[in-house]
Amino acid sequence: MLRYIFKRIVFLVPVLLGVSILIFVIIHLAPGDPAETLLGPSATAQDLAELREQLGLDKSLVLQYFTFLTNTLKGDFGRSIRTNNSVLEELLDRFEPSLMLAIFSMTLAVAAGIPLGVLAALRQNTWVDTLCNFVALLGFSLPGFWLGLMLMLLFSIMVPILPSSGYGEWKQLIMPTVVLATNTTAVIARMTRSSMLEVVRQDYVRTAKAKGLNGRLILLRHIMSNVLIPVVTVVGLHFGHMLGGVVITETVFSIPGVGRLIIDAIRFQDYPVVQGGILFFAFCLSLVNLGVDLIYALLDPRIKAQYRAG
């Protein structure tokens, strides 16, 4: 198992290298010049040339890439062209709100989605099932920005009990957490329901009944352990997505997260921040994937056996 984890971490190197090349090429192929954006239309040709030299933009692409790469390996992501702050500091600063939002939203989505799905499956084809499906469909179809605005209207303006935006105190996180969790809850509920309907039909559930086991024990030990395997996939995917910053939710609630940082950086052609940000995001996503795979191994001994062999 440890060997497997080590192997997976080693595999991160080529993945991140590939990502760094891709980002670098795409950014530099995009039209526009950060020097022009920074200095504005009144800048003289000499000013522009000086700034480009200062930023290292006058060198060849390959040389620029290798400078970026060696600096990154040293842990230096460079400085923002726009604010002149260290990119790493800025990222870590903005990562905290995104991480908090992701953790809270995912906890809420799992806590609500799994019971909802289980309930729907246990009461299949009854009004409970229909209601659960309706709620899930609603959660799946409501656009986040609309839901966010409606919640704000309700809880910040009509009944002012929650602050409408910002980041800092826990009250400010409630509405964005709910908005961000809504969609994921719906997906988890649907996934749990269909997975559960599949599992309860399996022969081993009949075996468990034939052994005279308690209904609760059958549900928790025999059914849920199998139901959760596909649900973990969804949770992992959505969590990775949330970590990368959810631009719309962050914008609606004015939360200073990674998503907005990267969007702003792209708009200003702030190369170092974009490169560092996306590389950081790729790194986080890989770690989440590794985590998901390890949880798989925990849930399913057949997968664990493959890891041992591999």
Binding site: Y204, A208, K211, G212, L213, N214, S225, P301
Partner: peptide, 24 residues
């Protein structure tokens, strides 16, 4: 009935590939 199943009357199923729980 639960006290009878698996205790007084028990059952062996057809397909041993699917009648055991794979994760236990």
């Amino acid at each position: 009935m639960k006290k009878i199943r698996g205790n007084r009357i028990s059952m062996i199923f057809q397909d041993p590939m699917t009648s055991l729980n794979p994760v236990l």
